[in-house]
Every structure is written in C-alpha cells, then in structure tokens.
Amino acid sequence: MTEASLWQSGAPSVSARGPGSGANLADILERVLDKGVVIAGDIQINLLDIELLTIKLRLLVASVDKAKEMGIDWWEHDPSLSSRAPKPVESRDLAAENRELRDRIAALEAGKETS
C-alpha cells in the first residue's frame, strides 16, 4: 500500500524531509480538525485468566466547531474551564440561598393555613 493510497481523498503523501513538508503537515492538520479523528483502544491485565484491570481509552481529535456539530460541548459547562459555566455549590452564597428557601417555605406554609 502506498502512502498516497492511505488518504481517502487522494491527498499528497507527507514526507518529513522536503521543502513543502510544513505546508503538507498544515493541510493534514486542517483536514483532521475539520473531519475529526477517533482513536480507540483497550488495555486488559489478566493474571491466571482473572481480569485484574481494564482500561478503555477513547480519544477524539476535532476542532471546536466540529465537536459542537457532534453535540460535544462539555467544556462550556465545566466551571474550571469556562467563566460562563454555573458555579459549583461550594462557591455559591449558601447563606443567601438558605434565606431564600426559608422565605419560600414560609410563604407556602402561610398559603396552606389560609386554605
């Protein structure tokens, strides 16, 4: 199998030597980010036919736009990666939330008594 036949769309082969290799590498990187690549593998450690450890590895390499097209946007909801993500419970003003909940309970109880 030749290098050129490895690429489905007939892209030119990439050589690490040669003056145009930077442009070819950039083209390949652009194609990978545009289309996306999935790399999957499993590692199992057995001792005397007893499974001790299984590690399942899944890696997706794609651009942010392509990931969003596929419905992957976990980084937008992770507070450590995005300032727009909701804050974790520990960082909220728990005293204010507690007061608000007590007021709501009082209002509900007052509504029951008048019924």
Rank of each mutant, 00 (worst) to 15 (best):
L57M: 09
P86Q: 09
V64S: 06
E97W: 04
K87V: 12
R92F: 04
L57S: 10
D27E: 12
A11V: 01
L57T: 11
V64I: 05
W74T: 10
L6A: 04
R17C: 10
S13N: 05
A11Y: 04
L33C: 06
S21P: 01
M70G: 04
G111W: 12
A85P: 03
L33Y: 04
K56S: 14
D42C: 09
R58P: 00
P86S: 08
K68F: 09
S82A: 09
S15E: 12
G111H: 12
D73E: 10
A62E: 03
R84S: 15
L29M: 15
I45G: 00
K87G: 03
S83T: 12
G20H: 11
A16T: 10
E97V: 01
A23G: 05
D93K: 04
A96L: 09
L6R: 11
D73F: 08
G71I: 06
L6Y: 03
L25T: 02
Q8T: 13
I39E: 07
I39Y: 07
M1F: 13
K35Y: 06
I105M: 07
G71R: 05
A110L: 11
D93I: 04
L48R: 10
H77R: 09
T114W: 05
L47Q: 08
E51N: 15
A26G: 05
L25M: 11
K68H: 14
L94A: 03
M1N: 07
A96K: 15
M1W: 12
L59S: 06
I43F: 12
R104M: 14
V32S: 00
R58N: 05
K112L: 15
W7D: 06
R92S: 01
L25V: 09
E69P: 01
E76W: 05
S21F: 11
L47A: 09
T114M: 08
S83C: 02
